[in-house]
Amino acid sequence: MIDLSFPLREKVALVTGGGSGIGRATARMFAQRGAVVAVAGLDEAPLLQVAEEIVAAGGQALPIVMDVTSEDAIASGIACLADRFGKLDILHSNAAQTGEMQEDGLIAAMDADFWDRTFSINLRGSMLCAKHAIPLLLASGGGSIIFTGSGKGLAGDLDYPAYGTTKAALLGLSRYIATQYGKQGVRSNVVVVGLAMTEALDRNMPEAAQKLMTEHNLVDHLGRPEDIAEVVAFLASDQSRYITGAAIVADGGFTSHSAVYADMLRFAAMDTGAKA
């Protein structure tokens, strides 16, 4: 029987990109639901802050400075986790390229080095985290891997082709892991994320752009990191034991409708106004 109050009790989790945004929200939610959490990322200060928040709330957390572009750093970080906690049950592979995104534009003007860096972080880094986590998951009798995907990986767009292509590739990586290790108890899934309004986005995204995105959502609000963390935490738990090799879309319905959805709503409103 699963303890629904603490469905991750006695689980050990690793969250990459855990210092901010979705990673921070997920690390905190894992801890609230009973897991011991290793919070990994590039910059020590935010990792320490997240770990301190978890400990202050009564949980256990370990900050790990880890560059996912370095296999040695990943191996060392996961070894540190294993030395401290003795096992690993959950990997949330969330680290992604978020800097220099102004370079992620037209393919004909794409800087190859930027393309390679994006793949190194988003795709190669995710593969390497899984590579070094899987032996520990197997030793624990199985476990759950959750990759942070993106709606940018489901369809073409005018911007972010490097980012979007890596997120599309994560779908394939996850299915291969699910297929190769499923009979040994390892599940692998992708949470396909729509716009999640972090504090930075709240500050920097123009109100008009937020309104436009809301118009295309099928719910009446934009998502928050905590909304994504809820889905990740479910996939990490035994409550989702029959789900693997899947892509769970958490985007408020943004990618599920006709491309002219918002335009047709405006057209219908104009037509109704004319008839009145």
Rank of each mutant, 00 (worst) to 15 (best):
Q97G: 05
Q97M: 11
Q97R: 10
Q97K: 08
Q97L: 11
T98F: 06
G99C: 13
G99H: 14
G99K: 15
G99L: 14
E100R: 15
E100F: 13
Q102A: 11
Q102F: 12
E103R: 14
E103W: 07
D104S: 07
D104A: 08
D104N: 09
G105Y: 00
G105L: 09
L106C: 13
A108P: 05
A109G: 12
A109P: 09
M110T: 11
M110F: 11
M110E: 10
M110C: 13
D111L: 11
D111Y: 10
A112V: 12
A112C: 02
D113L: 14
D113A: 15
D113G: 14
F114K: 07
F114I: 09
W115R: 09
W115D: 08
D116G: 01
R117H: 13
F119I: 11
F119D: 00
F119L: 13
S120W: 03
S120R: 05
S120G: 12
I121G: 03
N122W: 03
N122P: 10
L123C: 06
L123H: 02
L123A: 07
L123S: 00
R124K: 15
R124S: 09
G125P: 06
G125A: 08
S126Y: 00
S126Q: 04
S126P: 01
M127R: 09
M127K: 08
M127N: 04
L128T: 04
L128V: 12
C129M: 07
A130S: 15
A130H: 08
K131V: 02
K131C: 06
H132P: 02
A133V: 08
A133T: 09
A133D: 01
I134D: 01
P135C: 08
P135T: 09
P135R: 00
L136R: 05
L136D: 01
L137S: 02
L138Q: 07
L138R: 10
A139V: 10
S140L: 05
S140R: 01
G141W: 09
G141N: 08
G142W: 04
G142P: 01
G143D: 04
S144M: 09
S144R: 02
